[in-house]
């Protein structure tokens, strides 16, 4: 088994068609002519900018987890919750499966993504491969579909509306942080991590 020499090829993951890679211009997206799937997008942010995004996401992630998401009041009593508050409430109410799902998809997986990308990009900016590059690239690939911050963002909005028909609801800093985080993640996710294989040189290839 050998790497094909000289000619950079790519294979459509959705239908197995073979293409020759070519450099994409700004805003260009390469589609498979047979099945229409996206083969590759132009990577419009440099590695430095992507690194900046991921550092920002890391900071906002901390705020999102520490600050209360919303506050509800009924008469003189108030209640707030954080993401962890929600997971713990489910654990204590016979819904441990949901607690674990929420903790994984909203905390552990996004955290893994942010830390791993931060690590990879910190080295890739200088054209280097971080220690553990190969393992990190594989991990990022598998974890990606299970990170659900965007869904949670929408969920908080639905919860606020539902609660507001019975209580006074005041949005906390947490909800804004989740909004910003959704935005940062969406911009970041338009970049294919596989670019890092081309933009770095390492000993393992």
């Amino acid at each position: 088994m050998h790497v094909t020499p000289g000619q950079p090829l790519m294979v459509c993951e959705h239908c197995d068609a073979v293409y020759r890679r070519r450099i994409l211009a700004r805003r260009e997206v390469a589609h498979c002519t047979r099945c229409g799937a996206i083969l590759e997008r132009h990577q419009w942010l440099s590695l430095d900018k992507q690194f900046a995004l991921i550092v920002a996401a890391g900071i906002v992630f901390i705020i999102a987890n520490v600050e209360p998401i919303v506050q509800v009041s009924l008469g003189s009593s108030n209640a707030t919750t954080t993401l962890w508050g929600a997971a713990i409430a489910m654990w204590n109410d016979q819904s441990q499966v949901v607690a674990v799902l929420a903790a994984l998809t909203l905390f552990f997986f996004p955290l893994t993504q942010i830390l791993t990308f931060g690590w990879l990009l910190a080295f890739a900016r200088r054209g280097e491969r971080a220690p553990g590059f190969r393992q990190a690239m594989v991990m990022v690939h598998y974890v990606r579909p299970w990170s659900m911050i965007e869904v949670f963002m929408l969920g908080t909005l639905v919860a606020v509306v539902k609660a507001s028909s019975y209580f006074k609801v005041v949005p906390g800093a947490g909800i804004w942080s989740f909004g910003v985080l959704t935005l940062l993640i969406t911009v970041f996710a338009s970049h294919d991590p596989r670019q890092l294989w081309h933009k770095t040189v390492g000993s393992n290839e």
Partner: peptide, 20 residues
């Protein structure tokens, strides 16, 4: 696919919030 998780998160949030 993963957007269906919406209701699950809504229930988790409301259960944590509304405890009077």
């Amino acid at each position: 696919g993963y957007w269906s998780m919406l209701d699950v998160f809504v229930v988790a949030l409301l259960s944590a919030l509304v405890h009077f």
